[in-house]
């Protein structure tokens, strides 16, 4: 250890506020960025699932009615 005590570690020889401000801001901003990215991904996945479920039920309703209608919700593309 480069420090004699935990208090000395926090104080950083008088430079404590600067060092800890940097580390706290770094980790805080990084976590915000990471969380935002994860939430974005989750949101997109949810939205795609909802849209697909909606399209599926729409298809089923039309079949049960026996009426002819155009289905514009799904685009079947085989892009791999």
């Amino acid at each position: 250890m480069a420090f004699d005590s935990f208090d000395a570690f926090l104080a950083m020889g008088g430079h404590g506020p600067y060092v800890w401000a940097c580390y706290i801001v770094f980790f805080a901003l990084s976590l915000v960025l990471i969380q935002w990215s994860r939430m974005q991904r989750r949101f997109v996945l949810q939205r795609l699932a909802v849209r697909q479920a909606g399209a599926n039920t729409a298809g089923r309703n039309i079949e049960s009615n026996g009426k002819a209608s155009a289905d514009f919700a799904r685009v079947d593309s085989l892009n791999d």
């Binding site: 991904r41 997109v44 685009v75 085989l78 892009n79 791999d80």
Partner: peptide
């Protein structure tokens, strides 16, 4: 993080494909 964010962007762009 780049992989994560690229996955999100790919999902948005390729949302209508069969694999998505």
């Amino acid at each position: 993080l780049a992989c994560l964010r690229m996955q999100t962007e790919i999902l948005v762009r390729e949302g209508r494909t069969r694999w998505v």
